[in-house]
Amino acid sequence: MLVRVTADELRADEAIAAVASPAAGAIDLFLGVVRDNNLGRRVGHLVYEAYPSMAEKVMAEIGAEAKERFGLEACAILHRTGRLEIGETSLLIAISSAHRASAFEGGRWLVDTIKKKVPVWKKEVWEDGEAWIEGPESLGMQQAPAGLTG
């Protein structure tokens, strides 16, 4: 399974090649890209930080679970770190499967689960400031008592 945390640009052709399989009738590709706004603020760029060794380990575990749950042929998960400009790809997932339904469902589950568990963080940089983002879907936010999540 191709799993990587890297400061280098993510390339879709590499991820597609990594999941190619004669048994696959579908390849699903997901790109998480940097957008120029969040919660009404204009975002200049993002800075991603990771706990690289653990992030790759958790991504491999999630990928193995997705293969099992959805009967996938293969999956590839790549996350970029460092400074990313608007429009650049921060997360790249490729999935191959015999049929399209499991590829779409597996892809959705993979992205959702990555956002919960993988130790990667993004900082938004605005014209007039910056802040580390706490993912609303992250496990840490889900354990917080009401009123302490802000």
Binding site: G32, Y48, A50, Y51, M54, A55, H79, S90, L91, V111, I114, K115, K116, K117, V118, P119, V120, W121, K122, W132, I133, E134, G135, S138, L139, G140, M141
Partner: peptide, 10 residues
């Protein structure tokens, strides 16, 4: 031991 604030990858 890693101290892990709420993750926000993706």
């Amino acid at each position: 031991l890693a101290l892990i604030p709420p993750v926000s990858g993706g």
